[in-house]
């Protein structure tokens, strides 16, 4: 079986390091053969999340136990959740510790004190919330600039594009208008918020809901801009077929949506 020991040096004669996450070396020792493997641990003491690399190392080496002087509650919980025993208050040389471990000299295991458990839960909940907020803010920040651009475009559209020009494209013929809407939606790309803003502006300018619905559907189902990426990953046949069928389906779906809406709302 294999165990990880935090150590001050890269040899079996080195002393056990007192902090798991920030120890200079981590030694994976095979307790049967005394063969060992060394990981030099970056001592990035002040950086949040220091010790994650040590935890990942222990998990990836599929070890049975981690032996160290002290292990943070967060690291201990992560190790324990991967079925790794954590033994703390260990001292002496790596060699001595391995012998003591083989002789059953350590009685600590997965148990975490109540107050440590509460602290771990608090840390994990906080980390999840912070990470969720960070991801959402990042996604939002990516959406906003283009949305601001689209909103500015709507102002231009309302004041510089005449209704006559629009009606030369959207003539009032349901099938043709829906087809045009689907065409525009297929060419345009970006966050769907923009399709709603553009759709609402088109409705205000007298374009039919059939065309707007087709635009909204194809905006997200047909991706001419992303087509090269789809072809590269999923193949030419699949990508062309899928996008083509999405385009064709958008027209009956748009017509059916508006017809059902008219039927329900009256």
């Amino acid at each position: 079986m294999k165990i990880v020991i935090s150590a001050e040096g890269a040899e079996l004669t080195s002393n056990v390091s007192q902090r798991f996450g920030q120890s200079p070396y981590l030694l994976v020792v095979d307790t049967e053969t005394m063969d060992f493997k060394t990981l030099e641990n970056p001592r990035d003491t002040f950086r949040p999340g220091a010790g994650v690399r040590a935890v990942v190392f222990a998990v990836s080496e599929d070890v049975e136990a981690v032996l160290t002087g002290y292990c943070s509650p967060t690291a201990r919980n992560q190790l324990a959740s991967n079925g790794i025993k954590v033994i703390t208050n260990v001292s002496g040389t790596v060699e001595e510790v391995v012998e003591k471990y083989k002789a059953g000299g350590f009685v600590q295991g997965l148990a975490i004190k109540k107050e440590e458990k509460e602290q771990v839960t608090k840390y994990i909940n906080r980390d999840i919330l912070v990470s969720g907020l960070r991801n959402s803010a990042k996604q939002f920040a990516n959406i906003l600039p283009v949305t601001v651009g689209v909103v500015l475009c709507i102002g231009l559209f309302n004041n510089f594009v005449s209704k006559e020009a629009l009606s030369s494209i959207f003539s009032g013929n349901v099938s043709l208008d829906t087809l045009w809407g689907a065409c525009f939606g297929s060419i345009l790309a970006g966050n769907p918020i923009n399709s709603y803003v553009i759709g609402a502006a088109l409705l205000d300018n007298g374009v039919s809901l059939f065309a707007v619905t087709a635009l909204i559907i194809t905006w997200v189902t047909v991706g001419l801009v992303q087509l090269p990426a789809e072809i590269a990953s999923l193949g030419l046949k699949f990508a062309l077929l899928r996008n083509g069928l999405c385009f064709i389906l958008a027209i009956p779906v748009a017509i059916l949506t508006v017809m059902l809406l008219n039927f329900i709302v009256g």
Binding site: L152, G155, L156, N158, A201
Partner: peptide, 8 residues
């Protein structure tokens, strides 16, 4: 146009 955009 800018006023319209502000409303939107």
């Amino acid at each position: 146009a800018l006023r319209d955009s502000g409303k939107v």
